[in-house]
Design a protein around this nucleic acid. Structure first.
Lengths: 247, 247
DNA sequence: AAATCGTAGATTGTCAACAATCTGTGCGCA
DNA sequence: TGCGCACAGATTGTTGACAATCTACGATTT
């Protein structure tokens, strides 16, 4: 109900195209280093170059594609460093958002709405498809962060979530092996902390979540090929430092 | 020397226009609520609507202007909440960047380069002009954050710096009363911590810097008109919580 | 053989005209 | 008076053509 009456989605042509490009990258149709030629894309989508150009400019600041002056755009070729950086930003901004939520508290209705998004993650049909699972997970986390009433920070987190997913995909790491129950349990822990207006616990739960996720990816990355991930400064920062938040 | 051979600046027409618009907002030529009509701006700059449109799209995600579907863009009308949010993001991202710098250490040449940027802040001519002072300050902080080798996070910090400055300006707060010596001393403290590869101290110094800045603005805001800033959740978060960083 | 120069093709950057959409005003009607 | 509706003007969204720029490749020179 309340989601039905929410503001209409940003469905400009440029946004639609941007979503399609993101999807193509996700699916592997577009691979790292591939050029994004405005003319070609315009032809494929059967529109003019204007909106395509705008879509590319929309994607660029997220880091998914790289823009070079007068030379067009190419799909980014991320390293594991990039994934770590995005998750580090995600961790620290999430801490801020959740600490704010938990400190201020939220009204019952809004809280229930977010809780209901968690149900989708429990749906066996959703769990069967990695892509659906990822989307449901991101939708939940987005809603969670929006509780903070910090629109800028919530927006940064939304972008970083999409980026992180695509980066991981571009690196050739599969997301399928994730333990669904553990994921849901971590999210429940965060929600409980918010309900109890316990900022420190909310932050800790979030840190755990990011750490688990990064650890998962690091495992996948070591399998794929991979470098000495473990002594990376950010990796240390992310994994081994249960930082303290005041309550 | 090393700055002379650095990559060329992003000087596309759209970027130039975006800078001009930012400048106009800063100078007060464009005021909160003013509409940014593509046709008008194109005429003023004597170019077509294309680059103007692109410039507006460039400014929008930074929060300086608000975009409404099919209804164009207007200059944002920020509240002090917005300023706090931007500074909160700036504090937490800066902590991450500086902790990384201080943990990894930097080579002498790069460090000296950043140090030299601090000299500009000491120049009496620069100090005499608030705008120059602000620009020099931002340039220093940008360079400082770029030491982290975390390009995404450094970029977020750059944007937030420009935003914060414009927001403060839009709120009608003057920046002139800042104590220059104290500002420089805080920056020196951060640099010293980096040189000593002491992450905890670098983070603390940065927190102090943000706190001083926010406190300054809060004072100005109370003078201008203003609400009960002091019991804002983020204000509490920013000012009264010397959070702990591990070393 | 190596390096430089110049040209052709491809691609992005810019433009001005057209189409779609929105805002506000004034009229008719209860 | 208050409400709904239609229309005109203004403004954004989209398009296809043109200009500027870059890349690649081969000719020319040393």
């Amino acid at each position: 109900m309340s989601t039905a009456l929410a503001p209409l989605p940003e469905s400009s042509t440029a946004h639609l195209v941007a979503d399609r490009i993101r999807e193509a990258i996700w699916q592997g149709t577009l691979r790292p280093g591939d050029r994004l030629v405005e003319t070609d894309l315009a032809e494929r989508f059967e529109i003019s170059r204007g909106p395509v150009r705008e879509a590319i400019r929309l994607l660029a600041p997220e880091g998914l594609i790289v823009l070079r002056r007068n030379r067009g755009a190419v799909v980014a070729d991320p390293t594991f460093d990039d994934v770590l950086e995005v998750y580090a930003a995600r961790m620290t901004l999430g801490e801020l958002a959740l600490a704010t939520v938990a400190r201020r508290g939220v009204d019952r209705a809004t809280f229930d709405e977010v809780t209901s998004l968690l149900d989708r993650l429990r749906d066996p049909i959703v769990q069967a498809d990695p892509v659906s699972m990822l989307e449901a997970d991101l939708a939940f986390q987005d809603a969670l962060m929006r509780l903070s009433d910090l629109p800028r920070i919530a927006a940064m987190l939304e972008n970083s979530g999409r980026d992180a997913a695509s980066f991981v995909r571009l690196l050739g790491i599969t997301y399928e092996s994730t333990d669904h129950d553990a994921l849901i349990a971590r999210h429940e822990r965060t929600l409980a902390a918010i309900a109890a207006t316990n900022p420190a616990e909310a932050v800790t739960a979030w840190q755990d979540h990011i750490r688990s996720t990064v650890a998962e990816f690091a495992r996948g990355y070591r399998e794929v090929g991979a470098f000495s991930v473990d002594q990376h400064p950010l990796f240390a920062y992310l994994l081994s430092s249960p930082r303290q938040e005041e309550s």
